[in-house]
Structure formats: C-alpha cells, structure tokens
Deep mutational scan, measured.
Amino acid sequence: SASLEDVKTAVLGLLVILQTKLYTLPASHATRVYEMLVSHIQLHYKHSYTLPIASSIRLQAFDFLLLLRADSLHRLGLPNKDGVVRFSPYCVCDYMEPERGSEKKTSGPLSPPTGPPGPAPAGPAVRLGSVPYSLLFRVLLQCLKQESDWKVLKLVLGRLPESLRYKVLIFTSPCSVDQLCSALCSMLSGPKTLERLRGAPEGF
C-alpha cells in the first residue's frame, strides 16, 4: 500500500504534465506521457489490482482522460474550469503507423480551432504528436469488463456518452463501437458483474 501511494503521486504528476505538454513542443512528450498513463491502467486490469488506493488511481486517471476532446481538424483539447475547450495546435487524435513515428509534419500553421486557440506554431513546419484515442478506448473496454470498484465504473459510464459525442475521437483511430456495445450488453446481462463490484448501489 505504501508503494502504491508513491505510484499514485507519480500518476497525478503525469496527469499534470500531460495537461501542460498537450499545448507545448515537442509534441512527442505529450504522446509519451499519454502512453505511460494508459499502459499503467492496463496493468491494473492485467494484474487485478483491487486495493482501494489502486481504485483511486484509476478513478483520477479516467476522470482526466475522459475529458479529452477533439475538433473537426482532429486536434485534441481539454475543457477549462468554465467548460470551454482549448484545442492544441500540436497534438492530434489520429492513429499513425509505428514506422512513421509518433509525430508527423505539417507544412505550416493550422487553421484556427473551433475553441480558444493555443499558442501559434513558431516555425514554418510543426511536428504534430499522435495521441490516438484507441489506446484509451481499449482500456475503457477492459474497465467495462473487469472493473471491481463501483465508483470507477460509475465515472466511466457517466463520462462515456459525452466523449462519444466527439465522433472524430472514435473514427480517426481503430476504435470498435461494436466491441463497446458488446461490453456494455455483457456488463448488464452477465451474472458476474454484481459479484465483482464493490460498493454498487442496492438494486443495481
């Protein structure tokens, strides 16, 4: 439990870093931090981490990651405290083949985003970082199938509809809506759902 406290501190630090690096160059920093966060949550489900502190780590990670939004130009952003989304000039939600690297070039400044813009690109060529939603999407499927803490599952179920409104997140990387529907149906009809959940409301 003591070591998990250190892990929790590290994860919180990564969330803060991602919130900053999403809007700064090099964009590969945001890509790497995002991948680290998603990989860490995957390990929770792989090794069945069920301690309360592990659940709190997942809760905080999902609470942040499910706020990711994308505009029509595929640029990622996060809402501010007033709910207004600021889109990044440097990070996009497109999935890119590994051989192309985590970044790609664009020939010049991008068109203005639909929300308040981030800082304008400084040079004639900007390297865009790929932060594909499919990585998070796979972890969300694991959550629906394996999550043991009701608070975490409730958060994910509550945030998913709003995330799905931003269709560009889903359609720019390999996210299977069929698998999502299947996971939701299995969660509702499967007898093991109630068996594994802690803290579920009576009558769920």
Rank of each mutant, 00 (worst) to 15 (best):
133 Y>N: 03
53 I>T: 06
96 M>W: 14
22 L>P: 01
141 L>R: 02
51 L>T: 10
27 A>D: 05
138 R>L: 05
135 L>A: 11
101 G>P: 13
104 K>H: 14
12 L>F: 13
94 D>I: 03
49 Y>R: 02
83 G>I: 02
166 Y>P: 03
96 M>D: 09
28 S>T: 10
147 E>D: 04
77 G>Q: 03
171 F>H: 10
177 V>S: 03
115 G>M: 15
74 H>Q: 04
174 P>L: 03
57 I>N: 00
93 C>M: 03
42 Q>W: 10
43 L>A: 15
108 G>H: 12
109 P>T: 14
167 K>L: 03
145 K>M: 13
157 L>Y: 01
69 R>W: 01
50 T>C: 10
55 S>L: 06
54 A>Q: 01
106 T>N: 12
133 Y>V: 05
9 T>V: 12
86 R>M: 07
128 L>P: 14
195 E>H: 09
128 L>Y: 12
91 C>T: 07
159 R>Y: 05
30 A>K: 01
145 K>Y: 14
99 E>H: 13
200 A>W: 06
107 S>R: 12
99 E>K: 13
44 H>I: 00
144 L>V: 09
75 R>S: 04
180 L>K: 01
204 F>A: 06
93 C>G: 03
182 S>A: 14
103 E>S: 11
30 A>I: 04
132 P>M: 04
134 S>N: 10
42 Q>M: 10
37 L>E: 00
19 Q>H: 08
186 S>G: 15
38 V>T: 11
53 I>Y: 03
114 T>C: 14
77 G>A: 07
31 T>Y: 11
89 P>M: 06
119 P>L: 15
29 H>K: 02
158 G>R: 13
165 R>T: 08
47 H>I: 05
194 L>C: 10
125 A>M: 14
129 G>T: 15
142 Q>T: 12
133 Y>D: 02
138 R>Y: 08
134 S>W: 06
53 I>S: 03
67 L>I: 06
178 D>E: 15
11 V>F: 07
156 V>Q: 01
27 A>G: 09
90 Y>M: 06
154 K>T: 05
178 D>T: 09
193 T>C: 14
176 S>E: 08
185 C>Y: 07
23 Y>W: 06
27 A>Q: 08
183 A>G: 06
128 L>I: 14
144 L>E: 00
34 Y>T: 03
17 I>C: 06
20 T>D: 08
197 L>C: 05
25 L>V: 10
58 R>V: 01
2 A>F: 08
33 V>Q: 01
177 V>H: 02
193 T>R: 10
16 V>W: 08
159 R>S: 05
151 K>L: 11
82 D>C: 08
172 T>V: 02
43 L>V: 11
48 S>V: 10
184 L>R: 00
32 R>H: 05
176 S>H: 10
143 C>L: 02
5 E>F: 05
38 V>G: 04
188 L>S: 04
51 L>D: 07
154 K>L: 04
189 S>H: 13
15 L>P: 10
85 V>S: 07
93 C>V: 07
137 F>V: 04
50 T>E: 10
145 K>A: 11
70 A>Y: 03
192 K>G: 14
142 Q>N: 13
27 A>V: 12
187 M>A: 03
187 M>W: 04
78 L>H: 06
188 L>M: 12
105 K>V: 14
37 L>I: 15
175 C>D: 05
106 T>R: 12
199 G>A: 08
95 Y>V: 12
113 P>Q: 13
159 R>K: 10
101 G>N: 13
203 G>L: 05
107 S>A: 14
169 L>Y: 03
145 K>N: 10
79 P>Q: 06
85 V>W: 15
202 E>A: 12
55 S>V: 11
76 L>P: 07
201 P>M: 07
104 K>C: 11
77 G>C: 05
138 R>T: 11
138 R>M: 08
138 R>S: 14
127 R>K: 14
21 K>F: 00
187 M>Q: 02
72 S>W: 10
36 M>Y: 01
2 A>L: 08
15 L>V: 09
91 C>D: 03
204 F>T: 06
111 S>N: 12
179 Q>S: 09
57 I>W: 00
2 A>P: 05
72 S>C: 13
141 L>G: 03
86 R>Y: 07
169 L>V: 04
165 R>E: 06
91 C>K: 03
95 Y>R: 09
52 P>T: 06
160 L>P: 00
193 T>K: 06
114 T>D: 14
18 L>Y: 05
197 L>E: 03
164 L>E: 01
132 P>Q: 07
23 Y>M: 06
168 V>M: 08
48 S>N: 15
116 P>G: 12
47 H>E: 09
184 L>M: 05
142 Q>L: 10
116 P>E: 11
174 P>W: 04
109 P>M: 13
154 K>S: 10
16 V>P: 15
90 Y>G: 05
51 L>Q: 05
19 Q>T: 07
160 L>N: 01
102 S>I: 14
184 L>W: 00
6 D>W: 01
155 L>Y: 06
4 L>Q: 13
178 D>L: 03
40 H>M: 02
68 L>S: 04
154 K>W: 04
198 R>H: 11
141 L>A: 04
153 L>F: 03
141 L>D: 02
13 G>K: 03
46 K>T: 14
49 Y>D: 02
26 P>R: 02
14 L>N: 02
203 G>R: 08
16 V>K: 15
29 H>T: 03
191 P>Y: 13
112 P>L: 14
195 E>S: 11
95 Y>F: 12
10 A>P: 00
81 K>P: 10
40 H>V: 02
168 V>D: 07
136 L>S: 07
166 Y>T: 06
203 G>S: 07
29 H>R: 04
145 K>W: 14
154 K>Q: 11
13 G>H: 01
